[in-house]
Amino acid sequence: MAGTPSDFPHRSREEELDIQLAGHLAALLAVTDELRALAPSAELDTASARLAEQVTRLRGGHAPARTSGTATDPCPTALHHRAHTLAGRALVVAASRADTTAAILAAERMDAHTAALRDLTELSAAR
């Protein structure tokens, strides 16, 4: 009979949180790749690799899709704001599921994007 509980997929709370966390980290990875396309740096390369590693872990070994290396939004300020927001979302979910590794990575990315935004603000103010 349609509509019975057996008709719906069942996931545990932990599985749902893993899916959410992988999604937030994958989105953060995409923005990080966009930032790398605008201004390549070793720090962004490292962040990108660490994010990809965590997404792969959370997706049971399935590597995330990666961008082509071109920024869709050429505004670094907007990209850093978006990345900061995504890192914050990832941090909330990582804390909820007690994933220390992902929580630390998300917090580090939030700090990095906060610093980048501060630098961009100071740079534009100096002009």
Rank of each mutant, 00 (worst) to 15 (best):
S96H: 09
A126T: 11
D7C: 10
G69T: 07
S6H: 09
G60L: 03
R13H: 12
T70F: 13
V93L: 04
R59K: 03
A26C: 05
T77A: 10
R89M: 10
A52H: 01
P5T: 14
H84M: 00
D119M: 04
A115K: 13
R66M: 08
A22P: 07
A78C: 12
E34A: 09
E108H: 02
L51W: 14
G69V: 13
D18E: 15
G60W: 11
T72R: 11
R127A: 04
A95K: 07
A42G: 06
R89W: 09
L123K: 13
A49G: 08
A39P: 03
H80K: 00
L35N: 02
A37D: 12
Q20W: 03
P9M: 08
L38I: 14
A39C: 08
L35V: 15
H62N: 10
A106M: 06
I104C: 12
A26I: 04
L123G: 15
T46N: 07
T114I: 00
T100C: 07
T72C: 06
T72F: 06
R109D: 02
F8A: 02
L117K: 03
R66L: 10
R57G: 00
T32K: 01
A106P: 00
D45Y: 14
A52L: 02
A102C: 14
A112S: 11
S12T: 15
A2D: 09
E15T: 11
S96Q: 13
R59N: 13
G60C: 05
A27G: 02
T101M: 03
A115I: 11
H113Q: 12
T72W: 06
L58A: 03
A94L: 02
T70A: 11
R89I: 00
A39Y: 09
P64I: 01
S124W: 14
L123M: 12
H113E: 14
E53H: 06
L51M: 05
L25D: 01
V55L: 00
P76H: 09
T100V: 06
H62Y: 05
E16Q: 10
T70L: 04
L79W: 00
T72V: 06
F8V: 09
F8R: 10
D7T: 11
A125I: 12
A2W: 11
A126G: 10
E122T: 13
A27Q: 09
S41C: 09
A125G: 05
R82D: 02
T4E: 05
S48T: 13
T72I: 04
A98E: 04
A37H: 14
A107N: 09
A42D: 11
P40C: 11
A71F: 02
A95R: 02
H24E: 04
G69P: 08
L17N: 03
D7I: 12
L17E: 06
A112G: 14
R127V: 04
T121G: 01
A63P: 02
D45T: 12
T67I: 07
R11I: 01
A106R: 00
D33E: 15
L86K: 01
R11Q: 08
H62Q: 06
E53G: 14
V31D: 01
T114M: 05
S48I: 10
E53T: 10
